[in-house]
Design a protein around this nucleic acid. Structure first.
Lengths: 214, 214
DNA sequence: AATTGTGAAAAGATTCACAGCA
DNA sequence: TGCTGTGAATCTTTTCACAATT
């Protein structure tokens, strides 16, 4: 994880926050808001005002003291830095419930992301179509040329590593993993993992232990 | 975020890792593995061996030097500490693509989680059924008694705050939010946010900037 | 020889504090 | 007065290092 901006490090957490800011800003602009203060943007983005200021400082984007930041200019800057205007192709591997769920979610209004393929190893599923996308056989995956696409792995944990090996062979360098397992990849491949059930278990645990605001 | 174990703090990141360990251990036990070293468990859980050792040390769970940790005992301990054996009720608000996706994913084999209700404000959807769960009207949400349940918010960002206010009124104290917006809640309510599109944008950014392993 | 146990060190992320402007 | 700009301080998380143990 790297990339520097204005001497500070752009960590994945920071990038994720920038993306959230962009969504919030779109909404604010839609509502006719011209400026926003760090306090307000922080509240709308589930962060602190200090962190918002620190982030925008890192971005090199200045506001007006006593007033705040210009919503449209700020959005423009974030879109530019994150490259949000370009369209990315996404392939989803695993057409089980989760895979279909994600695929159907992404086919609708998610700006800049376009699902181009859906793979499954189950021959019974191959050939059918979901939300306009044909399900293809996972067998040939390793022989396809998939550089530049973002891959989503939504298979059972037991086959995730195998799928990832094939994706890597196909040239994929960015993988979003929903299987609750670690994945071994070459150093030039980035994997991010999301564990939906895990998030709920964490909430469950915190509730049991009535996590007070200390 | 709190709760101490053996003097050390159990942060949400740690809890999430414990959950991952549990999934990995289930698989290992299934494969007949009796012991696992921190290096192996780390690899399978997308963490470092050092962190695994540190986590298990925090747990107060000891291994055998030169050998590793006993898989079955360790799983038992984690299940016990995290309370994974109890069944949690989950309600999902928002029966759009994402809400339906999550609901259908959770109705199948996710141990310990049981979807009990699905809400939407769209009258056209209310009454229909998804994976055996009737869609109920979101209007009455604030008047229900929903203490102890885990709530999943899968509405558009614009209505998320309103939904959350109603959930809080109904007694909900744990919310998993998929809307890309910050949510204001009383201090005794915990919110965790997942931004699926955001994860993909982060990958996209890192790929554009060929994030070398520094 | 392999692997845990554990404090200390390092790295990273967030918050503070307050000067400086509009 | 309200809010940004920004380094310093703090807090958190992770890694290191190596003695201890099987």
């Amino acid at each position: 994880m790297s990339e520097r901006l204005r001497g500070r490090r752009l960590s994945t957490a920071t990038i994720a926050r920038f993306h959230t800011y962009s969504r919030v800003l779109e909404r604010l602009i839609n509502d006719g808001r011209r400026t926003v203060s760090s306090v307000q943007l922080g509240r709308l983005s589930a962060t602190s005002a200090a962190l918002v200021r620190s982030d925008l400082f890192t971005l090199g984007f200045g506001g007006t003291r006593g007033v705040g930041y210009e919503t449209d200019k700020l959005l423009e800057r974030i879109v530019d830095v994150l490259g949000l205007e370009r369209v990315r192709e996404v392939v989803v591997v695993g057409a089980g419930r989760l895979g279909l769920a994600i695929a159907s979610y992404l086919t609708q209004g998610v700006r800049g992301l376009k699902i181009t393929a859906l793979y499954d190893i189950d021959p019974a599923k191959v050939g059918s179509e979901v939300a306009g996308i044909a399900i293809r056989s996972g067998d040939g995956l390793g022989r396809e040329a998939l550089a530049d696409v973002l891959a989503v792995v939504a298979t059972p944990a037991s086959s995730a590593q195998h799928v990832v090996d094939q994706l890597v062979a196909a040239g994929v360098r960015s993988i979003l993993n929903f299987a609750p397992t670690g994945l071994a990849v070459p150093p030039d491949v980035t994997v991010r993992s999301v564990d939906l059930a895990g998030e709920l278990y964490v909430l469950s645990f915190l509730q049991d232990h009535h996590d007070g605001p200390t």
